[in-house]
Design a binder for these strands. Structure first.
Lengths: 161, 161
DNA sequence: GTTCGTGCAAAAACTTTGCATTATC
DNA sequence: GATAATGCAAAGTTTTTGCACGAAC
């Protein structure tokens, strides 16, 4: 992939997100820098449902002005605080991010063979989790549910657990 | 705690576990070393439902013969392979272990204030997870479900999310 | 005696931080 | 012009690894 191909139109409304980011930054007396804006743009351009800090750092490797690794990490945590990104840890040593904008809560199915991540939402499960938490005296705030297995494609290729 | 107090009788059958460990090691042509035995003993002595590699390393700080950090890490991964321990990642940067012996599958409630971990099991939830996985073409192997919130004790002290 | 395990310190992998410089408000 | 952000490299964390020596089978 030498040539960066036709720029794909981001499937998510950049202006809306930028607006949300700006108002968050303002509220916190933080600044909307060129880097922060570029980082948000890149996240949309990548158009990946899940990405790591390193994926994002890579995006700036041949780009000027450079955006340093430190800035990427710092921006990611601001974006999480702003509730623009969600942070996950799928059992590997690195964190995985996804846009939360316009994406209602969901959980994940992870293929242990190819690493593919599928999202799902199940109302009944949500209710059940609430019930379980309350039954144990907990006041639940959020949850993380991951189901690991072999995806259809891998299974089709004969991969077994 | 200068004096190591009355040695508490481990609540789990050490001989049974050691036997299981031995037969695993034999099957894999691995050796039952003094260190591996001591590590398993310490895990039982600690009698914590959940512990980290570092907790275990600490146990050997004033102990001779020393058991090195490297050995602890290596032993932990053998114990996980032997299905004597289960490994979890509760959203922090370190891994958490628990004895799997005699403890049927369960999931976790985690207090985001005090760090307390409660275990739960819900048959209905298990079935639902299976159904969701299969509905998405997945062949599930295992899952990890964590519900975060404020535990009863913290809530009672007025802690809110 | 062979093979595997250990201890040590160094490296690895991911993330965070200190500080002088630069950009934003 | 005050305050916050950046880049860089250095340091932090947790975990892994290379290697010479020692223990288990």
């Amino acid at each position: 992939m030498a040539r960066s191909s036709t720029r794909k139109a981001p499937s998510i409304d950049i202006d809306g997100l930028l607006g949300k980011f700006e108002s968050f930054l303002q509220r916190k007396s933080l600044k909307l820098t060129t880097q922060r804006r570029k980082i948000l743009e890149k996240i949309l351009e990548m158009d990946k449902t899940h990405f790591t800090a390193d994926d994002l750092v890579d995006q700036f490797r041949n780009e000027r002005p450079r955006v340093s690794k430190a800035t990427v990490y710092r921006a990611l945590s601001v974006l999480v605080e702003a509730e623009i990104l969600e942070e996950h840890q799928f059992g590997d040593s690195y964190k995985v991010y996804e846009l939360s904008e316009g994406r209602p809560h969901h959980d994940h199915l992870i293929c242990t063979n190819c690493g593919k991540i599928l999202e799902f939402f199940n109302e009944e499960m949500e209710k059940l989790q609430d019930k379980v938490a309350k039954g144990n005296g907990f006041h639940p705030t959020h949850h993380s549910q991951k189901i690991y297995g072999i995806c259809a494609a891998c299974w089709g290729k004969g991969v077994r657990a």
